[in-house]
Amino acid sequence: MKHTVKILGTGCPKCQNLTKVVKEVISENKLDASVEKVEDILEIMQYNVMITPALVVDEKVVMKGRIPSKEEVLALLN
């Protein structure tokens, strides 16, 4: 099943870090997923997060405020 992954964040180093981790996990495990970085604050607020970066998988917020390890990301995408 194809996943849509969104990374919410206004562009801080943490958010870029999270994007990197997610992209690496996807390419290393050859997962079928699209990654989109959401930087628009209005759009971010629609997900009701108050702390960035946040990770959204299939429109559900699964992680916020910290950078998960690769294993965690993999688990969330499977």
Binding site: G11, C12, C15, I41, M50, T52, G65
Partner: peptide, 17 residues
């Protein structure tokens, strides 16, 4: 609460909301 200046805007809106 640990603070990251990049979270200040979403936090602000969350509180106002």
């Amino acid at each position: 609460t640990p603070f990251c200046s990049c979270s200040s805007v979403p936090l602000f809106i969350g509180f106002v909301r």
